[in-house]
Design a protein around this nucleic acid. Structure first.
Lengths: 309, 309
DNA sequence: CACTGCCATACCTCAAAAGTATGAAATCTA
DNA sequence: TAGATTTCATACTTTTGAGGTATGGCAGTG
């Protein structure tokens, strides 16, 4: 079977046109090199070098072998580099998931764009799904990292980075009695009698619980009249006047003219986190790159948005 | 240094996901295969396989190595084939030369076209030059084969195939006294007093000598008044009325309305051969293909052209 | 015609790759 | 939960083959 050592030797031989000199260049003696050439020729049953009085010259077959050998050797010499790059997460693939609510947070697309730009060698694939499905994807190695909002009830084997926290806002239909003084803060207790619209608990346990617990702390149990499958659907229902909701501040972009958002006073626990979840075992190396990129981008992002919060 | 044996083993390992099974497939025992993997990892200082309870799985770095390895191995496995093809002359390169007069013989372009079509893997390069230059090119390995017309005075180290012979015709300017009865044959002695235009002797000794000797045999020495560097130039001079010439029959295509060609009677030696010259030592394998193609095409060509000669 | 330069051959040495035997860890099963 | 099974890792031995040294043989060269 052909091997790289002999290809290397053959290239030297062809380039030097001289067995003795080629042997010197290869750091070996002339006789083994002669035998090596003979071995190649015997194996291919083809004459590869014309033996001339003052050296050797490749035959046509030898020239073809020379071409092939150069090609293969160049590729082989690049292997170590590519593997190292992959191990550093600069090459390879990365499957990133996110919930629909995380996707609406401007930090997420910002990070994704920066990642693609700084590590073009990594093939990024994206998947939008519910939190439960994302967690399952991480565990089963279908995903490498996921942006989520809920605290993801202690799934073993997952590592969670808390990235940002943003306040939650009350979403009210235009014309609602509480929607008048939009600039001032609202007390949570003012919502005690209101019909709540929340996204379904099974899709992601986190935010639902946060809201319910904050209400309990304020002294009432929220009356949940509707459950929507997604955050966007929640807002559609609010806009249609079916009730009110509590949503992360970054949702303000949605809703247009039909929804009024008001800040909540008093309940400091009513915040929606943005989290990055990943596997603890067998993490893809590119995940480390993603983490480090996120950590580098966080300070700038916090400074730029704090004044407006 | 990386080598193909280990790449092959790694591919088997990754494909089986199982050291023991991969070892079996490779026809070896499990321990050396384990060590081989450890060796690769140590050399690249990178973890290539996650060790799972029931087997192994490539890491990201391992996946990249797997890709590269498959690519390199595919190439390496194709090497023997390509070399064999080159040795059979089905791949590689072939430099073919021809004199301007040989190029005018319709058989030559016919062969070249057929060659390119039947052996597309061979890169053919063409060179038109004088016979002397072609012979020099063959000897110095700048050319592999050449179509020539002259018997090429016994250059040592060259092998010559006689392909075809065609009669020579007298080329006369329109209106010449001998140009009247164009259909009938001319006796060579009728040309005894005519001014001859021949191509220069140094460019190719063959045809010049053939003509002069044929004239001597007919009882006169031709009066050479002009020498032209090329056959086409000869015909231009004939057309301009500077004299007459003797040219191979295939030249009839040239000269248009200004030249009349007449067959010669009596001198059976007045023929122009078409020859294929090649090196005797270190011939390019594709030359054998060219020769065999020519031999296969010759019978059909002779049959198709004999009636019109 | 002796000399020099090169490739080929014969024989020896040694390193490293493969084999054998066995251990250790973790899952699966009764 | 204990034992059986599976699977990778380690220790030690054997063997293959790559490389080294010495030398021969063949051609050009001064």
């Amino acid at each position: 079977m052909i091997d790289l050592r002999r290809l290397r030797a053959f290239v030297a031989l062809a380039e030097e046109g001289h067995v003795t000199r080629a042997a010197e260049r290869l750091g070996m003696q002339q006789p083994p090199l002669t035998r090596l050439l003979q071995g190649l020729e015997a194996e291919l049953s083809v004459l590869l070098m014309h033996r001339l009085p003052r050296g050797v010259r490749p035959t046509e077959a030898g020239k073809v072998l020379l071409d092939e050998a150069r090609l293969i050797l160049a590729r082989a010499d690049g292997v170590a580099d590519r593997v190292h790059r992959a191990a550093r997460g600069e090459e390879g693939s990365l499957a990133i998931g996110f919930t629909s609510s995380a996707a609406l947070h401007p930090f997420v697309p910002k990070v994704l764009r920066a990642f693609r730009e700084s590590l073009p060698g990594v093939e990024v694939s994206l998947e939008e799904a519910g939190t439960a499905e994302l967690v399952e994807g991480l565990v089963h190695e279908r995903l490498d990292a996921a942006f989520v909002r809920s605290p993801v009830g202690r799934t073993p084997g997952l590592r969670i980075d808390a990235l940002l926290e943003e306040p939650m806002l009350v979403a009210l239909p235009v014309g609602h009695r509480l929607a008048k003084k939009a600039a001032s803060r609202l007390l949570l207790t003012e919502l005690a009698m209101e019909p709540f619209i929340l996204y379904r608990r099974t899709a992601g346990p986190g935010l639902y619980d946060t809201i319910v617990m904050a209400c309990r702390e304020a002294g009432f149990s929220p009356r949940v009249t509707q459950e929507a499958p997604r955050l966007t659907a929640t807002l559609s229902l609010v806009a249609a006047g079916f009730g009110i909701s509590l949503v992360p501040a970054s949702m303000q972009r949605l809703g247009g003219e039909d929804i009024v958002y008001r800040a909540v006073a008093g309940s400091s626990k009513l915040v929606a986190p943005l989290l990055l979840a990943m596997r603890q075992t067998h993490p893809a190396p590119a995940v480390a790159q993603l983490r480090s990129l996120v950590q580098r981008m966080l300070p700038a992002y916090q400074v730029s948005t704090e004044p407006s919060q």
